[in-house]
Amino acid sequence: MKALSIEKLTKTYGNDVHALKGIDFNVNPGDFYALLGPNGAGKTTAIGIMSSLISKTSGKVEIFGHNIDTDLEAAKACIGLVPQELNMNMFEPVLNIVVNQAGYYGIDRPLALQRAEQYLTELRLWDRRFDAARTLSGGMKRRLMIARALIHEPRLLILDEPTAGVDIEIRRSMWDFLQRRNEAGTTIILTTHYLEEAENLCRDVAIIDEGVIIEDAPMSTVLRKLQREVLILTLRDGQDEAPSLPGFETNLVNSHELEVAINSGDDLNAIFGALAERSIAVVSLRNKANRLEELFMGLVENRQASVG
């Protein structure tokens, strides 16, 4: 049984916009799955359909075997949703928001209060439990939405850009928290604009563009498809011009930074060997862009070129 099974899912909005054009994908139980795509690709529509916020036009959606057309109540009970937009009553205290959500899932108040303390403490919000949501910072509001989504301990947690607008420290603490949830058995679907987030956290990835899935595979398989990368070498001594490296395209960004384009299967030792012959010492090395970002851009550009 799949945690999520989507078959031939379509969505056409009233203004004749075809947001989803018959997508298929599956998420295995326990997976940490990335759903990526440019703005307007259909990610939020797909998530909206999974969580009953948007009605589908056609197709089949099953959550842990529960079809949303025939067994919606059971399907909903399996899902915890952290939406892209803030959707809480800003005038309500933090504790009430979380405990009320538990009530909507049929959880008794004593147990809801116990769980609320657990999750609000883990997400560092317990001290603010009596404060109205509007008084929280942006990062705290995001964490509150995660606590609210977890209060009924869902088997499938769907996060639609949960770290948007959150500073790097809080983003990393949220990554740690989500990784612990995933290790504890919660299946997680993540959409994000921070592609390093998907690369660091997710085991599988689907890339969606203009309502069509253009890639759906394990992250490692997808990254292996990357044919070309650009490395930035930091040089100990300043250079006036880019050294010529046989078989590699080079570009001197500034006197101490050299860009080298490499293709899949290239021998990096050849670069260092050639630089050593010219007495050029390298003190550090990094990717110009995140690997997934390069691949993502390549796939989307290829598709847009093929569509015309």
């Binding site: 916020l53 949703l81 803030l86 009553n89 909507y104």
Partner: peptide, 18 residues
């Protein structure tokens, strides 16, 4: 309407409550 306007009606819509 306040719940719709503030989007927290979604708290109820996504839940299994009838």
């Amino acid at each position: 309407f306040g719940a719709k306007f503030g989007k927290h009606v979604e708290e109820m819509v996504v839940s299994p409550m009838s």
